[in-house]
Design a protein around this nucleic acid. Structure first.
Length: 369
DNA sequence: ATACATGCTTTGCATGGAGC
DNA sequence: GCTCCATGCAAAGCATGTAT
């Protein structure tokens, strides 16, 4: 039976058709040859015969003669920049200039062999970078080189079979009901609007809360619009090394509407009446950058005598409470801004046994015997 | 169903400075 | 002198699409 990538498919007329590469047009498009047959196996045989006539396709290869550094810079600044977020661009730039360029110095891209890559990895492992950073550096290197291959500037990608050991995922953390209550007691006393309350009752991410403006809250329709994220990213600037960046949310599906529940509505409209800024979470009459929100959060945790945890765990807490209350997974996904329920399930299937029991009870109620 | 490649966001840790 | 915020650098963690 056909396998993915083999390029053999069954046609509507009942025949099998296989395609093999014959060469490339001047602008890099592949020229295919075709074989047909009534049986898959016939086609496969014919394909192997034909393909052996075209063993190498490098006649149209337009080898890039510049340095790795020149290629990667072109790749990032010209080919990639429009398609990625500024924050990603800034990370890539940093990894390139700090690790990749200093190592490969003026080496030409076409001369780099897998052994050079392995040596680079060895060097990185000897440094005290974490495996996730090494992975990230290597993935940048790998994707820039595979773009060179795709664009016919390089015969093969030397990073092909260099592997980095992966690492384990951590369990998600969320607050227990008791901890949640203790935290709420602390933050509800505050005069200013609390980021924690918003997180606990909407599940919004820290950057989203940071960018939340009063105009995003529709008190008539009872909806919170998630439209902005705030983050601090590294920039190429002599004056400043990092800068606050306000952008659209993480992904398309993150741009979403969250229902505004009754008590939260009451809480928010009270806070709105003495608001001093267009931003909901206010710091010096403007938005509060995520960093400051975490800073305050840690302080509140200490006051509430709750163990150290991350702000993101409030989002998990929200989701956990939703599961406990029997919110279905599809709705939860939408509220959290996941593109599919897959992510939601991946994260919350290992929630506590108690939750699973409740979920099963929910299921059980649908069973009409 | 799971793993991997890639993109994007948040956190950890360190330090410095304005303003009380 | 202390509190709170701001910044810099690095790492960790989250999310998605795609290949296996």
């Amino acid at each position: 039976m056909p396998k993915r990538g083999e390029n053999i498919y069954k046609r509507k007329d009942g025949r099998w058709e296989g395609r093999y590469k014959k060469g490339r047009t001047p602008n890099g498009n592949i020229i295919y040859g075709y074989v047909y047959g009534h049986k898959y196996n016939d086609v496969k045989k014919k394909m192997t015969v034909q393909q052996s006539n075209y063993p190498f396709l490098d006649d149209t290869l337009d080898v890039y003669s510049g340095t790795l550094q020149a290629w990667m810079t072109y790749w990032l600044d010209i080919l990639l920049k429009e398609n990625i977020k500024l924050s990603t661009y800034s990370i890539y730039k940093k990894r390139m200039t700090s690790y990749i360029f200093p190592h490969f110095k003026n080496q030409k891209m076409k001369d780099i062999k897998s052994s050079d890559i392995s040596y680079f990895v060895t060097k990185l492992k000897q440094s005290d970078l974490s495996s996730s950073t090494i992975k990230s550096i290597m993935s940048i290197l790998h994707s820039s080189l595979s773009r060179a291959v795709d664009d016919n500037h390089l015969l093969r990608n030397p990073t092909g079979n260099v592997s980095i050991p992966s690492f384990k995922k951590k369990n998600i953390e969320s607050l227990s009901r008791d901890e949640q209550r203790k935290l709420e007691v602390i933050v509800l006393k505050k005069k200013e609007c609390s980021a924690e309350i918003i997180a606990l009752y909407t599940g919004m991410r820290i950057g989203e809360i940071s960018g939340l403006q009063w105009q995003d809250i529709d008190f008539k329709k009872n909806i919170i619009h998630v439209r902005r994220t705030v983050s601090r990213i590294a920039v190429d600037d002599k004056q400043q090394k990092t800068r606050i960046h306000i952008d659209k949310p993480k992904t398309k599906s993150s741009e979403r509407n969250i229902p505004l529940s009754k008590n939260l509505k009451k809480y928010l409209s009270e806070k709105q009446s003495n608001a001093t800024s267009e931003y909901v979470i206010c710091c010096r009459n403007s938005f509060t950058e995520p960093r400051i929100i975490t800073y305050r959060f840690k302080k509140h945790l200490a006051q509430a005598q709750i163990d150290e945890t991350t702000f993101h765990s409030l989002r998990h807490t929200f989701a956990t409470r939703c599961v406990e209350k029997g919110v279905d997974i599809t709705s939860l996904s939408k509220i959290l801004g996941h593109t599919s329920t897959k992510m939601t399930l991946d994260v919350y299937t290992n929630s506590s046994w108690e939750n699973q029991e409740i979920a099963l009870d929910q299921l059980d109620q649908q069973l009409k015997v």
